[in-house]
């Protein structure tokens, strides 16, 4: 009904954090990460926000397709009836939260894997530099 709103909210928060990190702080962090062969945290946050935005937009389209989201106030058809509203809130609390949690877990896995790959590549590069 409106499960995508939970991920969209998380996307707004993650994007704000990513933008709030600032260019200078991000550059300093990237330089430090380059030295330690790590993926910069700002890039990692961009992965998460891209997945959340992408998923939210495409799911919002699905809701428009099914007539659950309309281009006029209150935009969500479930808001017209109190019974539907409580069902919508329940769906957001269960399906919506599960979607946001799974995307975040996948992202954590991606970050750990990327760091492991960067470490492996970094180790190889250091060996080649020494040799």
């Amino acid at each position: 009904m409106a499960c995508f709103l939970v991920s969209a909210t998380e996307a707004v928060v993650v994007t704000a954090i990513e933008k709030g990190m600032g260019t200078k702080a991000a550059k300093d962090s990237e330089a430090a990460d380059d030295a330690a062969f790590k993926v910069p945290i700002r890039s990692k946050l961009k992965w998460l926000s891209s997945m959340l935005w992408g998923g939210s937009v495409l799911l919002a389209f699905e809701h428009v397709w099914h007539g659950e989201v309309v281009p006029w106030f209150p935009f969500l058809t479930a808001m017209n009836d109190p019974g539907d509203t409580s069902e919508m809130l329940h769906e957001m609390a269960t399906v919506g939260v599960a979607m946001a949690v799974l995307i975040t877990l996948v992202w954590v896995g991606m970050c750990l894997t990327a760091d492991a790959i960067a470490k492996r590549t970094g180790g190889k590069m250091q060996k080649n530099t020494k040799a």
Partner: peptide, 14 residues
């Protein structure tokens, strides 16, 4: 990639 994977994960939960 992120666009489609994000949507896929969300639809998987659904």
């Amino acid at each position: 990639c992120f666009l489609y994977w994000g949507a896929s994960i969300m639809w998987l939960v659904d």
